[in-house]
Design a protein around this nucleic acid. Structure first.
Lengths: 136, 136
DNA sequence: TGTATAATGATAATGGTTATCATTCCACCC
DNA sequence: GGGTGGAATGATAACCATTATCATTATACA
């Protein structure tokens, strides 16, 4: 049993628990629509507005992690170490990567510019190996 | 007189020329609404749909550069060397920076992951110096 | 057990962006 | 120089992700 401190969320309701369990059960990057559909398919239907509120609350509580991708926000498990993303613009595949040195350089730049960095977003766009081979 | 090859755009109309001139005349990062408003104020009103289409066409032609910021797309002059952005989440101020080493590391990562990178987007979020001092 | 506060869910609204479509513009050909 | 076809325009409707509204339901706790 792991105790977790949940600051801004008052109640971890069954709906929010369902959302959290779903996201924790996979390595996918879910958007709100996908969460809504998948929960419906599993017979634990949750209203779309509640999905949005739940995702926001869970993110604020640090239980999941949200990333703004191009046109929509996606959420993934929070128990992974920090990483950035590369997005295949053909098939939508998302690959993760992490690079300590890039992180450090960002910190250095912020410091130099007198900027108090609260977050960052690095997304590489391009073709994944599969799509590149398919297009040849 | 500088010749420019314009691949995907058929016609550089007066509306598109007005948009281009506006963006070229400043260092700002414009969104469609701002372009629309500013052109109206200058008495060269251009329909909002035309602004959107024009911005897209000009970007595809490489005459301006578009960046997806958090909630909207912004456009800036294309005749600047490549750079990334830091966005103050309080006042909206955008600061530019460029870092050769980060660029190189991104290339290396893409290569390693067998990913054909066509672009990238790095935005640092946080508080600019002014807002940080104001909040103290 | 009552009460205050939070969460839910259906639905309306918002806001940035794209689609539609009739009209206008313009390059090019005879 | 007039005709023609493809492209662009602009008013407006539609789209789509997200947020607000509000009546109802759930829950913690005094």
């Amino acid at each position: 049993m792991i105790m977790v401190i949940i600051p801004p969320m008052q109640r971890l309701t069954i709906q929010r628990q369902a959302i959290l369990d779903l996201i924790n059960s996979s390595n996918r990057h879910w958007d709100a629509e996908e969460v809504n559909r998948e929960l419906s398919d599993r017979g634990q239907s949750v209203g779309i507005a509640t999905v949005y509120r739940g995702l926001t609350a869970l993110e604020e509580a640090g239980l999941i992690e949200g990333i703004q991708f191009y046109d929509r926000k996606r959420y993934e498990r929070a128990d992974k170490s920090h990483h950035d993303h590369m997005l295949c613009t053909v098939c939508g595949h998302i690959e993760e990567f992490s690079h300590e040195k890039i992180e450090a350089l960002q910190e250095a730049i912020a410091l130099e510019k007198d900027f108090e960095m609260t977050g960052h977003q690095l997304v590489l766009f391009g073709l994944c190996a599969v799509c590149r081979n398919a297009s040849k």
